[in-house]
């Protein structure tokens, strides 16, 4: 068999042992239950480092699920997605407190933006629920799961502006000068700000919400098409 040609076919794939070694370093490592599936269970404090290493190794064709116990930073979500991780799972039944909502929202937005499935169970404080229906739903909330579709509230970057597509209640398309947003929420609009970010018009439009004295830009970045949530 012409080994060189077969190796060329496999070129994008690293050896799975490297991935297993990374997983072993950071937490409890469970094989399966699906064929060539690997579940890495680790504390949220080390997810960032795990994600960084996985991004380097790739997943070598393994179906890697990362389970952790809290809100994962946005950068780690991005690295897990780029590594090819199959799913991020937050363990336990999360009774989310208002103080942790800004980080939770940012994590949830990032998972949608980068196409990383997020699985979780739990509840959100009632005042926050209306602001979250475009984000990945908890598995225990049937109505939220039923109504959720990709692209319900997203933003797109343009030169000097941000375009918002809001399909939560019929389609609305808004263009906002990005100079007014990036100083508050960062270039990727994924950094909670102080109350100065709680612009009344943006809150009125349902694009910004305030949790525990911090303002969160609600839309996630739309990186996949077509978007047709209506």
């Amino acid at each position: 068999m012409p080994q060189r040609r077969l190796q060329a076919l496999r070129a994008p794939f690293t050896e799975s042992s490297a991935v297993r070694a990374v997983a072993r370093t950071f937490g409890k490592f469970v094989a399966g239950p699906r064929m060539h599936e690997l579940t890495v269970q680790c504390d949220v404090s080390v997810v960032g480092e795990l994600a960084w290493l996985l991004r380097d190794t790739g997943v070598a064709g393994l179906r890697v699920v990362v389970r952790t116990n809290g809100s994962v930073p946005v950068r780690a979500v991005r690295d897990l997605a780029l590594a090819g991780v199959a799913r991020l799972q937050i363990d336990g039944h999360r009774e989310l407190a208002e103080a942790e909502l800004p980080e939770w929202f940012e994590m949830s937005k990032a998972t949608v933006a980068f196409g990383l499935p997020l699985r979780w169970n739990g509840t959100m404080p009632p005042p926050a629920r209306p602001h979250a229906r475009h984000l990945p739903p908890p598995g225990n909330d049937e109505m939220w799961c039923r109504d959720w579709k990709f692209g319900m509230l997203g933003w797109r970057r343009g030169p000097g502006f941000v375009e918002v597509l809001d399909c939560r209640d019929g389609l609305q398309q808004l263009t906002i000068v990005s100079d007014t947003l990036t100083p508050l929420f960062g270039r990727e609009l994924n950094r909670p700000s102080g109350l100065e970010g709680a612009d009344a018009a943006l809150r009125e439009a349902g694009l910004v919400a305030v949790f525990a004295g911090r303002a969160v830009w609600l839309p996630y970045r739309l990186r996949a098409w077509p978007v047709n949530p209506l």
């Binding site: 496999r10 050896e15 060539h36 064709g61 393994l62 179906r63």
Partner: peptide, 30 residues
């Protein structure tokens, strides 16, 4: 489908087909 070392795993979740994972090894995987 994903290639893991010398194995190809095909996860079939098509409507109209039984949900199953096909595992191809060695020369079949190649």
């Amino acid at each position: 489908c994903r290639a893991v070392d010398d194995v190809v795993v095909i996860e079939d979740r098509r409507i109209g087909w039984p949900a199953r994972d096909h595992v191809l090894r060695g020369a079949r995987a190649s």
